[in-house]
């Protein structure tokens, strides 16, 4: 059978052709191509690793951000509470200060009123005494028209003074 007996010429040329093919590819093609394939595989590996790291970092960053937000909320709430407290305190203080001031004003007003009252009383008294003296003068002038009555009064007064001393 011709098919099962290898022909020498074909073996020879096949060997030569393969040697040439292998030499050309080994010299020019495979180093470049395989290096490219390897470096791309490395690049992809690195890329995947990088992406995983990035994801991890992103996750932790997100967590951190959430923590920060929670912390900020907490601080905000605290600040609000503080502000509230300070507000009430200020109002309280203001109120008490106002009270004190009002008290002062009232006190001074009272004092003034009292003084004025006193002054008024004094004035009134002076006037009353003036009126009284006037009246008395007039009365005395009328009564002291006769001598007897005058002497009698003087005596009475003198008696009084005497009895006082």
């Amino acid at each position: 059978m011709e098919l099962f007996t290898p022909d020498f010429g074909l073996i020879f040329w096949m060997f030569v052709a393969f040697a040439v093919l292998f030499f050309i590819l080994w010299k020019f093609a495979w180093p470049v191509i395989l290096k490219n394939v390897d470096s791309r595989a490395d690049l992809i590996d690195k890329g995947v690793e990088y992406a995983q790291n990035a994801k991890q970092q992103l996750d932790s960053a997100r967590q951190q951000a959430e923590e920060y937000v929670a912390e900020a909320r907490r601080q905000q709430a605290e600040m609000l509470r503080d502000a509230d407290r300070i507000k009430t305190q200020i109002i309280e203080e203001a109120r008490s200060a106002a009270q004190v001031e009002a008290q002062k004003v009232m006190d001074s007003a009272k004092v003034q009123i009292q003084q004025q009252q006193k002054e008024a009383e004094q004035q009134f008294r002076n006037q009353v005494s003036e009126f009284a003296l006037d009246i008395a003068e007039k009365v005395v002038k009328n009564q002291m028209s006769d001598k007897q009555a005058q002497t009698k009064l003087v005596n009475t007064l003198l008696d009084e003074i005497e009895s006082k001393n």
Partner: peptide
């Protein structure tokens, strides 16, 4: 007999095609 027969010629064509393909890829790379 080391004639360039039909099969030998076919082998050369295959070699040329493979070399061509790989050098094409090489130049791309």
């Amino acid at each position: 007999d080391i004639s360039i027969t039909k099969n030998v010629c076919g082998i050369f064509i295959a070699v040329i095609i493979v070399v061509g393909l790989m050098l094409w890829l090489r130049s791309y790379v």
